[in-house]
């Protein structure tokens, strides 16, 4: 019971830190998955008088993934009111060329503006439709979502860190007493500190294990996957290998830093 109590305060604080970090990771992954989806769905339409040289344009604008010429057949079909085949062929020749440009990733508003300007600089490009209004709204919503999640996670991190620093004083007192007594019998600093490091590393491993269980349970919840499916993205909520490695490493680093703070703040009793 006593031993559980000793571990609990640090374990809870560490789990809280790991939870915030994993939430940040999930939000980052969701946003990049959603950006990828938007990039896939999003395209610009370019109107040109001449046939475009794809390689030149792509070389100048590395953001462009593909350029596809749009067939004018659909437009002509709608206009086709008893025109002869010869006239239709003539019309096809005189009509400007329409192109669909897909991008490698979902761009920011300023990137869209720069790309539009660069394309319009070409003398034979007469119009670029970038659907900037729809794009701006979606992009701003995405940024807002990211900001809200970041603020939430960072606030949680700050509150946890403040709690840890408060706890630190209690631990400092408790460990100082033991370290002083060990020092009186000639224990070198490494031996006096070893117990503290061992305790904090054990706590870090316990916290990582608790987080592993927690996020494995969350990741197996169908409701969450349905929510992501409903917006058309698939997100890995918890990778049992790489995420666990990140969380364990972080927990150990935080614990070691806390232990070092206690050791550095240790004062020999006179």
């Amino acid at each position: 019971m006593k031993s559980i109590k000793n571990h609990l305060s640090l374990v809870i604080a560490l789990v809280s830190i790991l939870f915030s970090v994993q939430v940040l990771l999930i939000s980052e992954r969701s946003i990049s998955a959603y950006k990828e989806k938007l990039a896939h769905d999003y395209s610009l339409v370019v109107v040109a008088q001449k046939k475009l040289n794809y390689s030149d344009i792509m070389k100048e604008n590395s953001i462009i993934a593909t350029i596809t010429q749009l067939s004018p057949d659909n437009v002509i079909a709608r206009l086709h009111t008893g025109m002869s085949a010869k006239n239709v062929a003539l019309l096809k020749l005189t009509l400007p060329k329409f192109y669909n440009i897909k991008l490698k990733y979902y761009p920011s508003s300023s990137e869209i503006k720069i790309l539009t300007k660069k394309l319009l600089r070409k003398p034979f490009i007469t119009k670029v439709e970038n659907f900037s209004n729809t794009h701006d709204l979606t992009y701003k919503l995405l940024l807002l979502f990211k900001k809200v999640i970041t603020i939430f996670s960072v606030s949680m991190l700050i509150v946890t860190m403040l709690l840890i620093f408060k706890e630190l004083k209690i631990w400092q007192f408790k460990h100082n007493e033991r370290m002083n007594i060990m020092g009186l019998f000639g224990a070198p600093l490494w031996m006096r500190s070893a117990i503290l490091f061992r305790l904090s590393i054990v706590d870090a491993i316990i916290a990582s294990f608790v987080s592993f269980i927690l996020f494995t349970l969350i990741a197996s919840d169908d409701w969450i996957h349905e929510q992501f499916d409903s917006i058309g993205i698939t997100v890995k909520i918890f990778d049992p290998f790489s995420d666990l490695m990140i969380l364990t490493a972080l927990a150990i680093v935080v614990s070691i830093v806390l232990s070092l703070l206690i050791i550095l703040g240790h004062k020999e009793e006179v």
Binding site: N6, K174, R178, N180, G183, L184, F185, G186, L189
Partner: peptide, 24 residues
């Protein structure tokens, strides 16, 4: 030095009025 002091303390036994036992 700390090293010499630790060496000496390893050969001393100390008894305090307030015992100084490790509570945990």
């Amino acid at each position: 030095s700390n090293a010499k002091l630790n060496f000496l303390r390893k050969h001393i036994g100390i008894v305090f009025q307030d015992y100084k036992l490790v509570k945990e």
